[in-house]
């Protein structure tokens, strides 16, 4: 899932300073699961904003609506009817969701209430770890299911570097060396030959905005493009 964390309260307050009617839009998918921007977090933030602005003697009216997914057009429809009641929108979705809302309502200022952080896994309640940088050409098959792009601090494709420190990465005693783990896993699987071969320079595909059209759906884009 996409993991985000709420922005510091003062920053959020600063972003919507001067607006007296703001709609806070949550997202019911990734950011809800990682406890950053679902229905509950929308309610908590709104209560905090309400109280803070009362104390500042500039009360604010903050509306709340949490949609299933802000990155999906059909779920944004319910916003159409109410958006004009507000001066601005706060979005608690990931950066993609926030942009999709902003794109739908180009007249309305849209502000982020979270910092989108990574694609990761749920290690425990409230505890998430990064696992993928969406490089567009996955090499997990070669590396025993451990991502060298994300988990190695230098993103090496032919690791490990000379900094491996008692099995940990040179950057920290708390960060395992990805290439040490890759070696260990492939060794146990008897697949070391997989990293014995030279991996050539990556064709970085994430240097421009990417589009995916699944096979068979080419028409959907063609129809939408004027």
């Amino acid at each position: 899932m996409i993991v985000a964390k709420r922005k510091p309260f003062e920053e959020i307050k600063g972003l919507i300073k001067g607006y007296n009617k703001v709609l806070n839009v949550g997202c019911g998918t990734c950011v809800a699961v990682c406890l950053a921007g679902g229905e509950k977090e929308v309610a908590v933030l709104n209560a905090e904003l309400d109280m803070a602005r009362k104390l500042e003697e500039s009360p604010i009216e903050v509306g709340a609506l949490t949609v299933e997914r802000q990155c999906d057009r059909e779920y944004l429809e319910p916003l159409d009817a109410i958006v004009n009641d507000y001066e601005a929108i706060l979005s608690m979705a990931c950066g993609a969701g926030i942009q999709f809302v902003a794109e739908r309502f180009p007249q309305t200022p849209v502000f982020p209430a979270v910092d989108t952080t990574f694609i990761g896994v749920n290690q425990g309640v409230g505890w998430y770890e990064e696992r993928c940088r969406s490089c567009s050409s996955c090499v997990l098959g070669m590396t025993g299911g451990i991502c060298p792009v994300t988990m190695c601090a230098k993103g090496l494709y032919n690791g490990p570097c000379g900094g491996t420190n008692k099995g940990n990465c040179e950057i920290s005693k708390d960060q395992p060396c990805a290439w040490y783990l890759i070696y260990e896993r492939l060794e146990k699987q008897g697949r070391l030959d997989s990293i014995m071969a030279f991996t050539p320079a990556s064709k970085w595909e994430n240097q421009v905005p990417r589009t995916v059209i699944q096979p068979g759906y080419e028409k959907s884009k063609a129809d939408a493009t004027p």
Partner: peptide, 26 residues
Amino acid sequence: SGDHQKFGDHPDAMGVFDIDSMQLIN
């Protein structure tokens, strides 16, 4: 490869690592 930028005088720098030392040799 080079030491990680975290250790130096610009710890907030972006580490490039476009290619790695093996790929540089090649």
